[in-house]
Amino acid sequence: MASSDTKDISYEDLKALLGKSENLFLVDVRSKEEVDKGQIQGSVHIPVDTVEAAFAMAPEQFKAKYGVTKPLLEAPELVFHCQMGKRGAAATTKACELGYVNARNYTGGYKEWSEKGGK
């Protein structure tokens, strides 16, 4: 049973992961309009209201729809983010409920990322 406490990740931790981790799977759960204004490099756009369906897809379907390999349930670095943290937390909780053991939420969201110049 997944815990209801989401695991969080900080700006510094995410920036470090982006620089060194081959395993990072970063999911942007904001709306298309928000993503069109800018996004964290390397993130995959999966709107928050489609996260459950997306991560429940068969790997072939996921790859066909999103153009990337679906992360394994034990993927070491699965991080969700939104604009300011709330939708990212909801998506992280949903992923945990689906069995993703290392899902985390970047609490600062794109707002903090862009303010700190995390390009």
Results as ranks from 00 to 15, higher is better:
residue 3 S to K: 13
residue 3 S to W: 07
residue 4 S to F: 07
residue 5 D to V: 09
residue 6 T to I: 15
residue 7 K to I: 11
residue 7 K to F: 01
residue 9 I to W: 02
residue 11 Y to A: 01
residue 12 E to P: 08
residue 13 D to V: 00
residue 13 D to W: 00
residue 14 L to F: 01
residue 15 K to C: 04
residue 19 G to P: 03
residue 19 G to Q: 12
residue 19 G to V: 07
residue 20 K to Q: 14
residue 22 E to L: 12
residue 23 N to L: 01
residue 23 N to Y: 06
residue 28 D to I: 07
residue 29 V to L: 10
residue 29 V to N: 02
residue 32 K to P: 12
residue 34 E to I: 07
residue 34 E to S: 11
residue 35 V to I: 12
residue 38 G to C: 10
residue 38 G to V: 11
residue 38 G to L: 11
residue 39 Q to H: 15
residue 39 Q to F: 14
residue 41 Q to P: 07
residue 44 V to S: 01
residue 45 H to G: 01
residue 48 V to R: 10
residue 48 V to T: 10
residue 49 D to R: 13
residue 50 T to R: 12
residue 52 E to C: 03
residue 53 A to I: 09
residue 54 A to R: 03
residue 58 A to V: 06
residue 58 A to R: 14
residue 60 E to C: 02
residue 62 F to G: 05
residue 62 F to L: 08
residue 67 G to E: 02
residue 71 P to C: 06
residue 75 A to H: 10
residue 79 V to H: 08
residue 80 F to Q: 04
residue 80 F to V: 09
residue 81 H to G: 00
residue 81 H to T: 09
residue 82 C to E: 00
residue 84 M to A: 15
residue 84 M to L: 13
residue 85 G to F: 10
residue 85 G to T: 14
residue 86 K to F: 13
residue 88 G to H: 04
residue 91 A to Q: 00
residue 92 T to M: 08
residue 94 K to I: 12
residue 94 K to R: 08
residue 95 A to C: 04
residue 95 A to D: 02
residue 96 C to G: 10
residue 100 Y to K: 01
residue 100 Y to E: 05
residue 100 Y to P: 07
residue 104 R to V: 03
residue 105 N to A: 09
residue 108 G to V: 13
residue 108 G to W: 00
residue 110 Y to H: 08
residue 111 K to Q: 07
